[in-house]
């Protein structure tokens, strides 16, 4: 994080949020990063329920102005989505190993 942003956070946010280093903008950015990943996972028909739940929590927290939670949950949603995408990619090849012969 750039020093100038950190200073702005320190000035503008309550203690909890500033401790996590999250701002309205950074939370929104994290949510914006997560969303396309979820779309990819869905298009591969391998969305995980905790992914969807995490994004929902992020958006709820954002609406409430809890940007630290929003940012953390959005990051979790993105990571879970990335894992599910990786799973779907692998399974395109690996599924045949489960077929009884």
């Amino acid at each position: 994080m750039k020093p100038i942003v950190a200073i702005l956070i320190a000035l503008a946010l309550p203690a909890a949020a500033s401790a996590a280093g999250a701002t309205k903008a950074s939370a929104a950015r994290e949510i914006a990063l997560a969303k396309p990943k979820l779309r990819v996972a869905a298009s591969m028909n391998d969305q995980w329920t905790p992914t969807v739940a995490a994004l929902k929590q992020a958006e709820t927290a954002e609406r409430k102005g809890d940007f630290a939670t929003a940012q953390a949950k959005a990051m979790r949603a993105r990571k879970l989505a990335e894992l599910s995408i990786a799973q779907a990619m692998q399974q395109k090849k690996l599924w045949v190993n489960e077929v009884p012969r």
């Binding site: 028909n45 329920t49 799973q87 399974q91 599924w95 489960e98 077929v99």
Partner: peptide, 16 residues
Amino acid sequence: YSRRGQLNFSCASCHV
């Protein structure tokens, strides 16, 4: 036969 979900199970994991 494709594993899916956070638990990484396929239909076959349980039922085969």
